[in-house]
């Protein structure tokens, strides 16, 4: 049924994709960085500190998106028991944790010159820290339980319940008074970021997504080799 997900076919594609991403990555990174740091204008109010947005916002998006994806696959895996899905979620989680932490750290660096403080206990920052905690739990479970099946089940449950936090993060700035500003880019309606600043934002997002894909593919490849090695021993 899941023929495309079958490891032996996938392996060839993973090799090709890793090669492809490696070959275009540096040029794209240079273009994105030059737009983000040099070519884009400074903000009328925040000045050059607005450039922190070009790493902060994509990192936060990736943190949120990858957790949503993990939760979705975990949900399907929990109900239908599809083994390959847990390999995928396991390979995504560390990248998600890394970008969530980057979002929190760059956010606090951005907070100092704009808000006047590194840290504020407002709803957006608390809920984002909870997300990092859920990632941490998810990864810990895989490290702690050597029995693959038990680890899969517990981590799926963590991901599914952790997903309740996602809409809370998204709407925290609308539901409560927060120091964090409301969303600039809305799912419906126009964005409140000028197009000359949207371009570097999306370029950086694209580059970081490519980076995520690269790490994910390498991790997934490692997992496949690990399984095959186990199978060799059984011969």
């Amino acid at each position: 049924m899941f023929n495309i997900f079958h490891n032996s076919n996938l392996f060839k594609w993973i090799e090709k994709l890793i090669y492809f991403i490696n070959s275009i990555f540096f040029i794209l990174l240079l273009v994105a960085l030059s737009f983000a740091l040099i070519l884009s204008p400074a903000d009328y109010l925040q000045g050059d500190s607005v450039r922190i947005m070009y790493v902060h916002v994509p990192a936060a998006w990736i943190g949120l998106a990858s957790f949503s994806f993990i939760a979705l696959l975990s949900l399907i895996n929990f109900i239908f028991k599809i083994k390959y899905f847990s390999l995928i979620t396991k390979s995504i989680a560390p990248i998600g944790l890394m970008f969530t932490c980057i979002a929190i750290i760059t956010g606090s660096i951005w907070g100092q010159p704009t808000w006047g403080t590194f840290w504020a206990w407002d709803a957006r920052i608390i809920s984002m820290s909870i997300l990092a905690f859920f990632y941490f739990l998810f990864i810990c479970v895989h490290k702690l339980f050597s029995d693959q099946e038990i680890a899969d089940r517990i981590s799926s449950i963590i991901a599914i319940f952790g997903a309740i936090n996602i809409p809370i993060i998204k709407y925290s700035v609308n539901w409560w008074n927060t120091l964090h500003q409301p969303a600039s880019i809305k799912i419906l309606g126009s964005s409140t970021i000028h197009s000359s600043m949207l371009l570097p934002l999306f370029l950086m997002f694209f580059v970081l997504i490519l980076y995520c894909a690269l790490i994910f593919l390498m991790k997934y490849k490692t997992e496949i080799i690990r399984i095959k090695k186990k199978n060799l021993k059984r011969l």
Partner: peptide, 8 residues
């Protein structure tokens, strides 16, 4: 601030 966040 900008450079430290990009470098991190």
């Amino acid at each position: 601030y900008v450079w430290s966040s990009f470098i991190i």
